[in-house]
Structures are given as structure tokens and as C-alpha cells.
């Protein structure tokens, strides 16, 4: 185990654990792993620790970080919570200063997928990203399913699900809320998302989208992402996985271990290169 705690960002306010292989290969991209929800950098069920150690065993450097206001990172006063992707940019600055990688990959689950997307928009150093249960956009097939579902629910007398979420995404106020009350991120409009994806494709980012059963109400079939964004249809750097039997808290070891294998293999397939 070759791990080191580092502080980074303005005034060293951010905190993370750098995991390194015995002999790091600077030609490989480093992997950044932001928080999943409010859980600190170890990840739900210790997923981020196990993933980082598996990456190190495969020769890949990683940084498990706490976004501002979570884990051991300080709150950044006055910053809008939606800007948590800036913490990933600060992490890249810190690793660049150590000269240990060539490009970056972000692996984000749930709220971390939002961070990964926003960071990929902002920062050309990112060459790849994994989004587990990130943004979801509907398609005519989904809308039809939803309509039929509502009709069935009304016939059964079921109450409609409330979509009211009020709390902020970070800071102490967030800690007073229960999970179900938290609005983790705003999904960008279809137009905005399409523009972002167009940019990702232009930059030749390697992308993996994973959808689990946790989002089955919204992500309903395997090719939904492609149907929503046909520009991805023939994009060869895209991997799309629909894993209904999994959850983004990785609450079963069997799915956690399988997911780690998938993520490590995928990461090893990415070469560190400047994004063009």
C-alpha cells in the first residue's frame, strides 16, 4: 500500500489520498475520484479505497478527494455548490505540480458524475470520464412508459412520487438533511447536454456511462442514452453499460468487485495524451 495524504487547493483547504503504484508510469493518465453524495473519500462501502488500490496494483495513480465541505476538506465560503467541479481542477493542478501523470480521468458516481461532467467541460486536461448514474435525458419511449405508468398508478390509487427537493449540495446545512431531501444536481437541458457531448466527441474524450437499478425510473432501457443523443451512436470511444442489478452505493460486494474490474480494465485502455 503506497498512499499519501495531500492537501491542495487555495490555502490547502482541500484534502485527498494519493494512491500510487510501486513504479508509476507517467505516460498513463491519473484517476480522480470525487465524493459520492456526502460520503467522504473512502466511498460507499469503501468502494473508492478498493478501486484506488486496484488501480495502483494495475500501475495507475489515483487521487480520492473530498470536495469542499465534505470529509476533511474545508468549506469554501461563498462558492456556489454547483461549482464543486472546481475541486477537481484544483486536484489536477496539485498532481501536475508533482509531474506524475499525463492527462486525467474522472470516475464519478451519482453526484460525482455531475462533478465529472462539469470538470470535463471546464478542463482540457481531462482525457476520459466515467459517469455512474449521472445525467439522464428522456426519449419518446421513456415518456410513453411514464404515461402508461401513471395511468396504471391512478387505476391502483397509488400516490404520485414527489420530486420536491430543497436542500443545498454542500456545507454544514447539507448535513442536517436526510438523503431523500437533497437535490444533488440539476440535469442540464437536452440542448446544453448535446453541446457538451459534441465538445467531448470533438476532443476525443474516452467516455463510459453506467446506469444502475437505482435510476430505473428515469433510465429505463440500455440504449436510452444513444436514443437521447444520436451523435453518440457511432462514437468509438464510448462505452455504455446498463446494470439494473447494481446500485451506485455498491451495497453488494459482488457488484462492487465486478464494477472495480470493469473500471480498472477501462482505465488501462486509455492512453495519457493531451486532449486536442
Amino acid at each position: 500500500m503506497n498512499e499519501r495524504a495531500i492537501s491542495f487547493g487555495e490555502s490547502g483547504a482541500l484534502f485527498g489520498i494519493l494512491g500510487a503504484p510501486e513504479v508509476p508510469d507517467p505516460a498513463r493518465p491519473a484517476v480522480l475520484i470525487p465524493n459520492t453524495g456526502l460520503t467522504h473519500r473512502v466511498g460507499p462501502g469503501r468502494m473508492h479505497v478498493e478501486l484506488a488500490r486496484a488501480l495502483a496494483a494495475a500501475g495507475v495513480v489515483s487521487l480520492r478527494l473530498d470536495n469542499a465541505g465534505l470529509g476533511d476538506s474545508e468549506v469554501v465560503p461563498g462558492r456556489h455548490p454547483a461549482l464543486s467541479a472546481l475541486d477537481l481542477c484544483a486536484a489536477m493542478d496539485a498532481l501536475d505540480a508533482r509531474n506524475i501523470s499525463s492527462g486525467y480521468v474522472v470516475i464519478g458516481s451519482h453526484s460525482g458524475a455531475h462533478d465529472a461532467h462539469q470538470a470535463a467541460r471546464l478542463d482540457p486536461r481531462i482525457v476520459g470520464a466515467v459517469f455512474v448514474d449521472g445525467y439522464i435525458h428522456g426519449t419518446p419511449r421513456v415518456w410513453l412508459n411514464r404515461l402508461l405508468g401513471r395511468v396504471r398508478d391512478r387505476q391502483r390509487g397509488d400516490a404520485e412520487r414527489s420530486d420536491l427537493h430543497l436542500s443545498p449540495r454542500s456545507g454544514d446545512a447539507l448535513h442536517a438533511a436526510v438523503d431523500a431531501e437533497i437535490r444533488w444536481f440539476d440535469t442540464p437541458s437536452h440542448e446544453r447536454m448535446e453541446a457538451d457531448l459534441f465538445d467531448f466527441v470533438r476532443r476525443q474524450l474516452t467516455l463510459m456511462y453506467i446506469y444502475t437499478g437505482d435510476v430505473e425510473r428515469d433510465y429505463q432501457y440500455a440504449a436510452q442514452l444513444i436514443d437521447a443523443f444520436p451523435l453518440l451512436r457511432n462514437y468509438r470511444r464510448l462505452t455504455l453499460r446498463h446494470i439494473p442489478e447494481a446500485d451506485h452505493r455498491y451495497s453488494r460486494r459482488s457488484t462492487r468487485e465486478a464494477m472495480i474490474d470493469v473500471l480498472v480494465d477501462w482505465t488501462l485502455g486509455i492512453s495519457g495524451r493531451p486532449a486536442g
Binding site: E245, A246, D247, T255
Partner: peptide, 12 residues
């Protein structure tokens, strides 16, 4: 919360 097709495996 889940449909039959997306049930989690039983915990070990």
C-alpha cells in the same frame, strides 16, 4: 423501490 428485473442480489 425496485422492479423485479432490477432487484439487487442477496447480500453475501
Amino acid at each position: 423501490q425496485r422492479k423485479l428485473r432490477s432487484q439487487l442480489a442477496a447480500p453475501a
